[in-house]
Design a protein around this nucleic acid. Structure first.
Lengths: 331, 331
DNA sequence: TTGTATGCGTTATCAC
DNA sequence: GTGATAACGCATACAA
């Protein structure tokens, strides 16, 4: 069927060993041989079968990035960081989506167990900490963007508690006292952490926690809209709103705009993620920016390091975030 | 190192052939053997090495989707259609990004040539028609969302000419005569086709084509903003704007909003793609919707069909689009 | 129902 | 510098 190293060897009048040497740019091969082999390769349109190579070397030089879906454009920069770093070390990055299904996530991890890839990175895992800890003990598995409480696996993320705290502190320093929180009922650790930061900021500033100011919804922008509507219908309205994602913040502002609220003066808004739309949508949204590219870069570096050792690094690395101040906080 | 089929055979006191039979759920194997093998598998934590299997069967049951970047959340539904269809046929879908680099696109196609995947789908190729035609003649390669003029490869897309025409005709039927076009200088075939539809609609309605009404920019929302600003500074302003993507349309509306233009009355706006933000952004954008899921589904079905034959289908399939009418056209 | 033996395409070890 | 040849892990034809 397909043309193999054997056909090339035959055509070039050399052994398959020589062809392999040429293919792998080994030094101990005569110029004549190199030439003959390359000529044969071109004429036959030969392309090495990596299944053979991978089996023999038992490495694929491929890393799998497992994400929920390609919808969250937010992952884009992280993936880029992963790809550029991987490429510089001779690895390719493949992406697969779980569609929020832990079973499918496990199925995809099968590619790791079955040696179809050399390593895998989970960006927002659906599996639990214990399961992942177990897997990470025997396989080159890492997590990025999202940590899991008590999970013994290499993790690269930001300090979401501190980030939430920073955002809310900024609102407090702007003189706000009734700060609403729009978050999700379905709890990723990052959401939990950001909410914790919100509470810590209030506490440290002597502002009592008011449960009626916290709206638990879903991930969509429409949920942000509903949340804002609900918070704004309180008799004691908030004077600022912190949303745990830009998407929710934008949805929230949609309500505020149609309700004639003066965003950035009457009510301040703070988002999280610094997605592209946060500075397309008007008014421009103040938000927390993660070092996406750097997280992707670091997780790949550490993962590849782990491949070369049998005492894997299972630390959690937290990279610094920053506040991006725009119109919605009056900046 | 890793535990293999051999270890399992040894532990279960059977031959590796029997283990393989159990692994592949063959019928001709005794219950005792099945039990013993499964027990051994569990105890050893065995997981088959697919590199061996794939090499032997010379198939991977994996399909590669090659996209520019995960940033265009627009691809999300297409990918879902691909995945669900592939899964139902026992295939996995992997995604890789070209970062707009034709060289890297070729590198990724290497996975196809080297038998690391059974097939590949290009979503918005950077390579030219001739190159792709050549490759498609010898490999299971297809295109989706974007066609290439004169390309002899299986293609699933929509009729972008007709779609552009439909959008502009709608604006004309609303009584508009000076219709601006915001498009990109960097020409994907879909952009070219949509522009062609724009011109055909004008022509068929006896409206003279006015080059000053066409703005050529880049893909970003900010380019839409600039385009709108330019068009609106004409002495003879447009009374409607058709943008070849929602992103450009949203950018354009940003200018319109800040210039105090009454969108949906004074100037109508029509986008393309029906991205999520088209109905988050206010006012809600009228746009052209593609059958994303169906395109993904169809391309995988046809691609898998092609794998089973040596007379591959290189047709172009065009699926029906639809107009989504919202506030920006006064609906 | 089971085991033995062969080969998938490649790399690497060893002689020469 | 080069060529046999033995692995890599698995599926399967064939023999038993």
């Amino acid at each position: 069927m397909s043309v193999t190293i054997k056909d090339v060897a035959h055509k070039a009048n050399v052994s398959i060993a020589t062809v392999s040497r040429v293919l792998n740019h080994k030094s101990n091969v005569s110029e004549d041989a190199v030439e003959a082999v390359n000529k044969a390769i071109k004429e036959l349109g030969y392309s090495p079968n990596f299944l053979g190579r991978d089996l023999r070397k038992s490495e694929t030089r491929r890393i799998l990035a497992i994400i929920a879906s390609t919808e969250q454009s937010f992952y884009s920069e992280v993936i880029r960081g992963m790809e550029e770093t991987a490429m510089s070390k001779g690895y390719d990055v493949l992406i697969a989506t779980t569609r929020d299904d832990p079973k499918h996530e496990m199925h995809l991890l099968g590619m790791l167990f079955s040696h179809s890839v050399d390593g895998a990175v989970l960006l927002g895992p659906k599996l639990d900490a214990e399961t992942i800890s177990g897997l990470a003990a025997n396989h080159n598995l890492a997590m990025c963007l999202e940590r899991l409480e008590g999970c013994k696996a290499l993790t690269v993320t930001i300090n979401n508690v501190q980030a939430g705290k920073d955002a809310v502190n900024y609102l407090i320093n702007k003189g706000r006292r009734r700060i609403g929180l729009i978050t999700t009922a379905q709890r990723a650790q990052s959401s939990v952490d950001r909410e914790l930061g919100y509470r810590q900021a209030l506490e440290e500033n002597g502002i009592p926690y008011d449960p009626s100011l916290v709206y638990y919804g879903t991930y969509g922008a429409d949920s942000g809209t509903r949340g804002c509507k609900e918070l704004m219908s309180l008799t004691n309205k908030p004077d600022a709103i912190f949303a745990i994602s830009d998407m929710l913040a934008i949805g929230a502002m949609n309500h505020a705009l149609s309700a004639g609220i003066d965003i950035g003066k009457e009510v301040l808004f703070f988002g999280f993620d610094d997605i592209q739309y946060s500075h397309i949508f008007i008014p421009h949204l103040s938000t927390v920016r993660q070092p996406c590219f750097m997280q992707g870069k670091l997780v790949i570096e550490k993962l590849i390091d782990n491949m070369k050792t049998d005492t894997p690094d299972t630390s959690t690395y937290m990279l610094p975030h920053s506040l991006i101040l725009r119109e919605t906080t009056g900046d």
